[in-house]
Every structure is written in C-alpha cells, then in structure tokens.
Amino acid sequence: MTELHQVDYPSPIGVVEITGTEQAIVSLYFSEREQPLHAVQPDTPQVLKECLQQLDEYFKGQRTEFTVPCLSSGTEFQQKVWAALPDIPYGETASYRDIATAVGNEKSVRAVGNANSKNKISIIIPCHRIIGSNGKLTGYAGSLTRKEWLLKHEQSVRNGQSIES
C-alpha cells in the first residue's frame, strides 16, 4: 500500500489539509480545525512541500494555475468532469450545464453536479468555479462562504486588486 503523508496550510479562510503520496496530491480539503496540526516533517514528500508553496502563492494572488501533480480516483465520467474544471479560466465561473456540454453530454447536468461534489482536490481542481445556471452560488463542500471568498479572491486578483481576508 502507498504511504500517505499529510500537511496543513493555514489559509485566510481556514486550515487546508493536504494529503499525498511521494508522487502526487490525493486530497485537499478545508478542515474545520482552528489550527494546523500537520507540519512539514523530515520525511514530508517534495510534492507536498511544492503544494504548500503553490497554495501560498495562490492565496497571495501570485499564482493562477497549479502545476503540482494530482491523482484522483473516480469513475470515467467523474474523471472527465474533473479534467474539464481547470479549463474554466481563473476568476471566471461556469455552470453545471457548461461542464456537461464540455464533457459531451449536455443532459448530464445532475451527474456533473454529483461528480463535482466528489472532487477530493479542491482549489487545485477548481470545483468552486461552478455555479448554478441562474448565476447563483450552489453547494460547496468547503462551505458557501469559502466558495464566495475564493471566487472574489480570483476576480480581484484577475482585475489587479487586492482582497481583504
């Protein structure tokens, strides 16, 4: 079995818990803990250290794309949906229907929503950029407050403004 490592990133909107192997990130979630618990250790893989660095740059408004390797496990359809999410430009949004069309089945709006909710690598695979077709924010495992913050953060960085945390 592949050994998993964990490290926490103290973001402006809560602790982000990163889990990965020697080769890739396998999950990135907002924790409900107030303080980071998992610090970088001597045996922390380089990929987790790189993820910490990239997250730090993202939250400081210095990074708009992630290059850290990720490994997602899911159905073929889920994989297609997750692969389409990074195509949504930084600071912009798309609807579930937009993603359904992008993966070749415009009738699969609910299935896209379901796949989106099963994304284990938030922020890097930007499920927060998905909104309802009516333009309203819809469910986000990390909370709608965090989703709104992430979208405002990206829009302000894209527009050359800073955001208050």
Rank of each mutant, 00 (worst) to 15 (best):
Q46K: 10
C127R: 15
I121Y: 01
S11T: 02
G20R: 10
P10M: 10
E57A: 15
L4F: 13
A94H: 05
S165L: 13
V40D: 00
Q23P: 07
S162Q: 12
I25Y: 02
I121C: 02
A94D: 04
F59M: 06
Q46L: 11
T145S: 14
C70K: 14
I25L: 03
K118H: 14
S95L: 00
H153F: 12
K136Y: 13
S122M: 14
Q6C: 12
H38M: 07
E154H: 03
S156R: 15
V47L: 06
V157Y: 11
T93P: 01
D8R: 02
I99S: 07
S73W: 14
A111C: 06
E32D: 11
I88Q: 13
Q53V: 10
D87M: 15
G142R: 11
S108A: 15
K118C: 11
P42F: 08
M1L: 14
S95R: 00
L28T: 08
Q54N: 05
T93G: 01
E148V: 10
D43Q: 13
I88L: 11
A102S: 13
T101R: 04
V15G: 01
L71E: 15
A39M: 11
F59E: 04
R97I: 06
Y90F: 15
K152A: 15
N159K: 15
G142H: 14
I125E: 06
K136T: 12
R63W: 01
I130C: 10
T2D: 15
G139H: 14
P36M: 03
Y58P: 01
L52R: 03
P12R: 10
E57T: 07
N105P: 04
F66W: 00
D87T: 15
I124N: 03
S133H: 08
T64Q: 14
T19V: 09
I125T: 15
K80P: 11
Q6P: 08
S95V: 02
S165F: 12
I124Y: 08
W82A: 07
L151Y: 02
W82Y: 09
I130T: 05
T138N: 13
A111P: 08
Y9I: 10
V40W: 00
I163M: 13
S162D: 09
E76P: 07
